[in-house]
Design a protein around this nucleic acid. Sequence first.
DNA 1: CGGCGACTGTACCGGAGGTACAGTGACCGG
DNA 2: CCGGTCACTGTACCTCCGGTACAGTCGCCG
Lengths: 209, 209
Amino acid sequence: MSSLLATRKDSTTRDRLLDLAETAILQKSFAATSIEELVAGAEISRSGFFYHFKDKGQLAKALLLRYVERDRAILDDIFARGDALNDDPLHGFLVGLRLFAEMTASLPEAYPGCLVAAICYQEQLFDREIRAINRDAVLAWRTRFRARFDRIAALYPPRIEVDLDDLADMASAIVDGGITLSKTLREPLLLSRQVTLYRAFIRAVFLGG
Amino acid sequence: MSSLLATRKDSTTRDRLLDLAETAILQKSFAATSIEELVAGAEISRSGFFYHFKDKGQLAKALLLRYVERDRAILDDIFARGDALNDDPLHGFLVGLRLFAEMTASLPEAYPGCLVAAICYQEQLFDREIRAINRDAVLAWRTRFRARFDRIAALYPPRIEVDLDDLADMASAIVDGGITLSKTLREPLLLSRQVTLYRAFIRAVFLGG
DNA sequence: CGGCGACTGTACCGGAGGTACAGTGACCGG
DNA sequence: CCGGTCACTGTACCTCCGGTACAGTCGCCG
């Protein structure tokens, strides 16, 4: 149960493996990341890897769960701060979007990339379980944003006819697509600008041009 | 030079390999597609594959070039039809977007997926040449849409303050992101709905709510 | 002192990509 | 008819990687 003193270093070996794997996978894909390089980086043996994860798929699963949870925490925090600065659900959301755009802009390199998208394109490598995690994560964002838009629409009747579920999905699409473009073009700020554009659309929908 | 009679079947072996590879890669990623299954599908020997492509990377390159060109042709046709139905650059574009949304909606399964995105997340597997093709393709779309928006903005001064390059990039982001979401959620119509939302945004920018 | 958690080491397997190279049959120009 | 080239086939071989199977080790905890 590890508790206070880890056998090596400060973090547990398992966590170091996950960290190394995440960095490597986002840089060069899951398939191109070998177990060999991970165990070399973590300074353990190959057997050590299979002690922690029964196969590469289990590594992917653990990684995805950690990633989804971390993303959720970050965005929860951002929108909570947006709401703290503003009572109104619309303006709180708009502030949140601006904070998010600023956050993505301040990242050193391009946004680390989105594991959800990365795994979507490599999905056949994985099992049903992993695809379900991915699906649930995306649906959770739809639900969260949809609930927000319902509250907003009650106060600000939409000026443009839109489906609120689609508007919620658009946030995910813009972020995923923005990351992809950002990486492809090697333009780190592209994602931030796309988020800002999405924000302008939300404004137009509920406040008008 | 093959000319009239191919040695086997009607299409050339090389084309059959590309067709098989495209289907397989979009279904289950590049890495998970083995040369073995391609040569089995094309009914040739392993040596035959390496006769046509010196390695898997050359296959990816040929595939990407073919894909990018085909996409360009399809969208050229769609926006040409939009313009044919309407003299105005804005309304021609809006018609084109509707045609595009209809096209993606009518596809049997989800949109076949976007090789550009698929390859972006597996980029380290490939060389500079392939990344350049990808980059150029995306930049070409930015340029094309940007030129269109310049023409539109001359006639319809934007009601919402937006950068026209960003607005052009948004089309690519929405399509890439929409495909990813569509695949992840297994909702074939999601992409079409996102394109329709983008169309609503374009309307709002240039015509107002 | 005994057991368990966190490993290490060794050996082995199959599949995938890739190389090397010799051979073969159809067709084509001279 | 002959030689060459195109489009392959077949065989052999190599490496890397994921994965399996264990047997052994070392430190800590009850």
